[in-house]
């Protein structure tokens, strides 16, 4: 088990969408999507609400089966969820009856990590997201920003090869959101995991992404590389204008 965790830490997952159509029931949300996500990159999908950003993410996670086409993870078709593809949800995805520590330990427990290794691993992730000392609190005792920190720790604790983030900071106020973005940049520096991040906020996309996918009403529009990714001093006004135009 520990060997598997170690290799996971080394390589990100290559994700590919081949002619994927998605929808709920009879209603099609997106048709014929093609997308390649390179191992270890941070790909941000930007789109207005209702454009189907979260739906794409759910398909990659394996929570939603495509109506047509295939989702491939490292060349293997996705048929269901896997601990290799961890997900961070917008809000309230922590199990409210488990303390912070036990929430973070849960993916390790599901992966079969022995009890005595789980505790220290969870504790170090809790500290990593700046919540040292909060391990015994319940989610209801935490603010929204703190709960998202815990979710981040929980998703990364089992060393997934891809992290799928569904507007994780969407419900936070501007100041907390800024702090969380800085924390995420900081944490991502130490992991090789591929990140697919969904947001409606263009500035958030530009701050985090290697590449930005613009999702308009008609599906995937442009895929735009970000010059000098994750370096705050770069001027991206031109790219920003292009994205807004695409939307």
């Amino acid at each position: 088990m520990t060997a598997a965790v170690a290799t996971a830490r080394e390589t990100g997952l290559a994700i590919r969408l081949e002619g994927v159509s998605l929808g709920y029931g009879r209603h099609a949300v997106l048709e014929d999507l093609h997308l390649d996500v390179a191992p270890g990159e941070v790909l941000v999908i930007v789109g207005p609400s209702g454009s189907g950003k979260s739906t794409i993410l759910r398909a990659v996670a394996g929570l939603l089966t495509p109506r047509a086409g295939r989702v491939l993870a490292q060349g293997v078709p996705v048929t269901g969820p896997s601990p290799d593809r961890a997900m961070v949800f917008q809000d309230d995805a922590l199990l409210p009856w488990r303390t912070v520590r036990r929430n973070v330990e849960l993916p390790l427990r599901i992966r079969g990590v022995p009890r005595r290794e789980r505790g220290p691993a969870a504790e170090s992730w809790i500290a990593r997201v700046g919540l040292a000392g909060w391990g015994d609190r319940l989610p209801r005792e935490l603010s929204g920003g703190m709960r998202q920190r815990v979710q981040l720790a929980r998703s990364l604790a089992a060393a997934p090869r891809a992290v799928l983030m569904d507007e994780p900071f969407g419900a936070l106020d501007a100041q907390t959101r800024g702090e969380m973005q800085r924390l995420l940049l900081d944490v991502l520096r130490d992991t090789a995991a591929t990140v697919v991040f969904v947001t409606h906020d263009v500035d958030e996309a530009l701050l985090l992404a290697d590449r930005v996918v613009v999702l308009g009403r008609g599906g995937i529009g442009r895929v735009l590389p970000v010059p000098g990714p994750r370096t705050p001093e770069t001027d991206r006004a031109g790219l920003r204008a292009r994205i807004i135009e695409e939307l």
Partner: peptide
């Protein structure tokens, strides 16, 4: 919550 646990495998 179920989705969260399923994405942990």
């Amino acid at each position: 919550w179920e989705d969260a646990v399923r994405t942990m495998g």
